[in-house]
Design a protein around this nucleic acid. Structure first.
Lengths: 223, 223
DNA sequence: GCGAATTAGTAACAAAACGTCACTAATGTC
DNA sequence: GACATTAGTGACGTTTTGTTACTAATTCGC
C-alpha cells in the first residue's frame, strides 16, 4: 500500500439544537438565491488553522450570536448525495444551545425537528444522524443539561429528557434516579411560574461517583 | 455568512481491532523509510467515488486480506497534530475483525492495544478515541459479535465483553442478561477445548424485542 | 479405573433498582 | 374558601441484578 493524501472539498455542517415550547428545534439559515432548497444547515469550510469544533463554534456564533460550549460529533459523511456547497465530505457537528440563549440572525430561524422544510439530501441525513446520536448519548453524557440555563427546575429537566427520548417519564422514578446520580445540587432559589406550587431551582454539579459499575446491558436494537 | 468549500487534505485512518490471546489487538503497518516512527495505522485518502466506510474496507483488505463487515466511526479529527501523511483532517474508522479472520500482510502486525509502539500523535489520539467509542457502544450495538466467528461459546462471548470493558463479569449474571435479550440462539454443536466440559455453540441471531423501554439511566461519567 | 482438576451451566437467595399509586404542599383563580 | 394546577415525597409490590453455591461433563495423572 502506498498511502497518499488527496485534496478534498470539506464542509462542517452544524446542527444547532435547542428546546422550544414543546419540541426540539433545529436552526436553519436561508439559502443564497438560486439554490434548489430554501433552507439549509449553517455550514462552512474549516479554516486552515482551526479545529472542527472551533469551526462549528464560529459558524454557530455567526448565526446565533452566542458561542456555545457543547459539541457532539455526528461523524463524517461522504455518501455522494447533494450538499448545498457541493462538498465531497461533510463533518456533522451537533451544537446544544440552552433555551433562550442567543437570537437567530436575520436569515436564520428555528424549526421543530419533526417538521423541517426540504433540505439538501446530505443535510437531511446529517439531521437524522444528529437526532440519533443525541438520543443515544443522552444517558451517557450530560447532554440534557446543555439545553438548559445554568439553573433550572427538575420539571424543566424532565421535560428535556422527554423531548430527547420522545416518551413520557414518571416523575417519582425520574427524581429518584437523579438523586442517586449526584448530578445536580439544589440552590436557595425558587421559581413561581404563575400557577401551581413554586419549584426549587437546581444546578448541574456532578459529584465524583464511586465506580459502582454494573453488568452488561445488551440494550441492542432499542426501537 | 458566505459559506464556501475549501480543498483540504484528508485521510481515512483505520483502527482494525481483533481479539488475540488475552488482549484486544490493533493492526499496524510499517512506515516508509525515513519516517519519524516505525509504525502507523493503515490509512489512505478516500478515492473520489468512494464512501468513507468503503475506503476503510479497501484499506483493511490491503493489509489483512479480508473485507470486514463492520465499521464504527470514531469521528473526524483536525487537531493540528502530526499525521504520517500530513493530512489536515483525519477520519478515524474502527473495523472489527473476528479472531482468526485474515492474515496480516508482510509489513503489518498485531499489537496489544495496551502496549503500542510509538505512533504519530494524531494516530495515538485516534486509537484512544477508537477504544473509547468501542467501550461506549458495546452494549448498544452488536459490536462484540463482530469480533467472533459465526458460532461461538458463551464463554468466548463473555471473554470478548471482558476485553472490551476491561473488567471481569459474573458468569451467571452475564448469561441471564443474554438470555433475556434474545440475541443468540443455540446450535446443535458442542465444542470440546481439551479439558473441561464441552460448551454449546451459539450463533448471533437477534430477535425482535418488544419495546420495554425503561426509565432514564444517568450513567454519566463512567470513567 | 478413579479421583483431582478444569471448564460449562444453573438454581436460588438477598439486595438493589424500578414502576406505580397515592398522598402532601404551595401557589393562583374563581 | 373550594378548586385547579404544579411540585415534591412515601411507600409498596415487582423486576432486575450480584453473588454464592451448587451440578454436569470432560481431560489428566496415576
Amino acid at each position: 500500500m502506498k498511502p497518499a493524501v488527496r485534496r478534498t472539498t470539506l464542509a462542517v455542517d452544524v446542527v444547532v439544537l435547542s428546546p422550544t415550547a414543546d419540541a426540539l428545534a433545529v436552526l436553519l439559515v436561508r439559502t443564497p438565491a438560486g439554490s434548489r432548497e430554501r433552507w439549509m444547515l449553517p455550514w462552512d469550510a474549516p479554516q486552515a488553522t482551526e479545529g472542527l469544533e472551533e469551526a462549528a463554534a464560529r459558524i454557530t456564533e455567526s448565526v446565533l450570536g452566542t458561542t456555545p460550549a457543547y459539541f457532539e460529533q455526528v461523524g463524517a459523511v461522504a455518501d455522494g448525495k447533494r450538499h448545498p456547497g457541493d462538498a465531497e465530505v461533510s463533518v456533522g457537528i451537533v451544537v446544544l444551545s440552552p433555551s433562550g440563549a442567543g437570537a437567530p440572525a436575520e436569515d436564520a430561524e428555528w424549526f421543530p425537528i419533526a417538521s423541517l422544510p426540504t433540505l439538501a439530501p446530505r443535510h437531511r441525513t446529517i439531521v437524522e444522524r444528529a437526532a440519533a446520536v443525541v438520543r443515544q448519548r443522552v444517558d451517557q453524557s450530560p447532554l440534557a443539561f446543555r439545553l438548559l440555563p445554568p439553573t433550572f427546575t427538575l420539571s424543566d429537566l424532565q421535560s428535556i429528557y422527554e423531548l430527547l427520548l420522545s416518551r413520557r417519564l414518571h416523575k417519582a422514578s425520574f427524581r429518584r434516579a437523579l438523586q442517586a446520580s449526584y448530578l445536580v445540587e439544589p440552590t436557595d432559589e425558587w421559581r413561581s411560574e404563575g400557577r401551581g406550587r413554586p419549584a426549587q431551582l437546581f444546578r448541574f454539579a456532578p459529584k465524583k461517583r464511586r465506580g459502582a459499575r454494573r453488568g452488561v446491558r445488551f440494550d441492542l436494537f432499542s426501537e
